[in-house]
């Protein structure tokens, strides 16, 4: 249930219309969704579910189908391995870790977009990664509230 609600919340944030000038500073909501699940609830996460949940995100962004599945798998792998250590540090340090992990994901995204015929500017991916790291704390709070609301709060929720 928590997965469904957090996923729909992420889709709503992705689909929400923002002015074009804000595009360079929009957080990567889909990636933050995966970060939260990989760090905080990886024992409830299924790679199949993650892969199929990424397809609507590709449709909303207009990217090639499978591109977000690729990035999600990479993020889930890295963050599940880092998870136990990252959960021990404070929120600011977590944001720093999230920034560097998302920067790697952005580099992969840049490469995938170039392969699919787009001409992306890396600095925009960089600013979006920075915005995502800044939004990690509120996003984590929101998702934990959702988990509390659906009655599936984890042991690490605060």
């Amino acid at each position: 249930m928590t997965f469904l609600v957090t996923w729909v919340a992420s889709l709503l944030l992705i689909a929400a219309p923002f002015p074009a000038f804000m595009a360079i500073a929009l957080p990567q909501w889909g990636l933050l969704f995966v970060v939260w699940w990989s760090l905080m609830r990886n024992y409830q996460l299924s790679i199949t579910l993650l892969t199929f949940s990424s397809l609507p995100i590709d449709v909303l962004y207009g990217t090639a189908l499978g591109m977000h599945a690729f990035i999600f798998a990479l993020l889930a792998y890295v963050l599940t391995l880092l998870g136990p250590r990252v959960r021990q540090v404070n929120l600011v340090m977590q944001s720093v870790v999230v920034f560097f992990v998302l920067l790697v994901a952005s580099a992969v995204s840049y490469w995938a977009r170039t392969l699919t015929g787009l001409d992306p500017e890396f600095y925009i991916l960089f600013t979006q990664t920075l915005a995502s790291a800044i939004f990690w704390a509120p996003m984590r709070y929101l998702f934990e509230r959702i988990a509390n609301f659906t009655g599936e709060a984890g042991a690490d929720s605060s």
């Binding site: 790679i47 990424s54 090639a64 189908l65 499978g66 591109m67 690729f70 889930a76 792998y77």
Partner: peptide, 20 residues
Amino acid sequence: AIVRFVIAVTFSVATMVVDV
């Protein structure tokens, strides 16, 4: 972990190729 990761990556790359 590596097996799951490889399966997920293979599926996503195949999907991208078929789509694009």
